[in-house]
Amino acid sequence: MTTSVPHAGSGAPAAPLSMDEAADHAAHFTRLADEIASAVLGKSDVVRMALVALLSEGHILLEDVPGVGKTTLARAIAAVTDGEWRRIQFTPDLLPSDVTGVPVFNQATREFQFHPGPVFSNVVIADEINRASPKTQAALLEVMEERQVTVDGRRYPVPRPFLVVATQNPVEMDGTYRLPEAQLDRFLMRLSLGYPGADAELAIMRGDRLTAPEDLKVVADSERLAAIAAAAKRVFIDDAVYRYVLDLAHATRGHDEIHVGVSPRATVALVRALRMLVLASGRSYATPDDVKELAVPAWAHRLVLAPGSAISGRGAADVLRDVLDRVPVPAPVRHGDE
């Protein structure tokens, strides 16, 4: 299944999104999220964020201990969007061609024929990505960025929508190859499912309210997804909100506890996800609240902490929350009092 998503700026300036349109798209988004949530119990926030990432053409890094439902999430996303899903278990001996596919000599045609690898599907689960060699990691990351595989000078585009859900085990780091910062920057969001709540876990054990991913209904086809993505591009973002994103970025760059702040690519990525998040909320305009909601998932993994604060045990998310608490938001009342 290959669907092209229209790009922003590829035509006349889009008309502003009306509230009715926004509500319409949000309804579809909510149905998608609800359907997935019936397979991934008690994690509606993460499901929403994952969908936002999918629809804004981003990739997700899931950092979690094994067994909390990473694969289920990915399979559910694939199922409700009528997509294929593949899973690649990353190991130290995994070769790049095991990911991208190999050209095989066809005796009949006497030509090399490309055998697509597992990346040629709509949702790719790259399990324990940090266990593979950097070369293999780089192959996957190239596909993520380029959305195509180049073999022997020929380009093979991957299907759309294309979502890579890479997982990392944050606990067990022996014998792993840490993802370099530049490659972390390629992920739109880093999410964490975490353990389910008590009610959800009971339900999972009983299995009564739980739907298996393969039983999920297809809620939106690729056209609908493309329509949602196109609508997101027409979301209005006030200059004050842009300015607020910039202030936050500047604050991370000048912060004592942060060695390397967020890059311009990160601000662009945040705004891209912001549009989809706003649309998912059924609104036609972004507010500072949306920025605050997205900042940690979209930025925390891109920050390099200063050595001191890394030792003190504070994570990038904690530092980023400090920044959010310090930077003034744009005032809702612009022209003073009375």
Partner: peptide, 14 residues
């Protein structure tokens, strides 16, 4: 109402 007033932009007619 306040958020809409501040951030909705010039659009939407209403």
């Amino acid at each position: 109402a306040l958020n809409a007033l501040a951030f909705m932009g010039p659009a939407s007619g209403a």
